[in-house]
Nucleic acid binder design. Sequence first.
DNA 1: GCCAGGATCGTCT
DNA 2: GACGATCCTGGCG
Length: 186
Amino acid sequence: MLARSWFERDAPVVAVDLLNKLLVVDEGSDAQVSGRIVETEAYRSDDPASHSYNGPTPRSSVMFGPPGVLYVYLSYGIHSCVNVVVGAIGDGQAVLVRAVDPVDGLQVIRARRAGRGDRDLTNGPGKVCAALGIALADNGTDLTGPGVRIRVVDDGTPSPANPVVGPRVGITKAVDTLWRFRTPPR
DNA sequence: GCCAGGATCGTCT
DNA sequence: GACGATCCTGGCG
């Protein structure tokens, strides 16, 4: 489990370091669902595309809280997307988890994503939440606390030395800010 | 395979 | 009252 200080860094830095970490969700006492993070995006309060751009609001206030906490929001009235708050308290920084590769609980993931092929299980922010069972109710979860249901784990796999960098997806502002990061294709 | 359009509702102006 | 940090479906080639 990663310590809070690990998250207390600038969003683009943490976004790269999150690549190849495991996002783990407990499923009862004896089981877990997890995925290896393969795509992230960084957001900051000085960034017009960020929910934190205009200062704290009832929705975005979590982004201004302590790092290492989940920020989950509803997108297009349908899909949940999961972020990790980073930086110092008051910064309003977060990293969006855009895609993972399934690791544990593949059967559960397939069931939650019924009707989809294995390549469409977790390759988008809404799909990651659906597959791992992360919901709006998980907004504000402290990943660094003891006995939490959701956590980020370093299994020793280093983050890629040369991540693929590109523009963020689905935004209309700050399109030229290259804060999307992916693990290189195999 | 590619593209256009719809779903659906909380959040902010 | 408009607009998304998205996903899925159906039509067409």
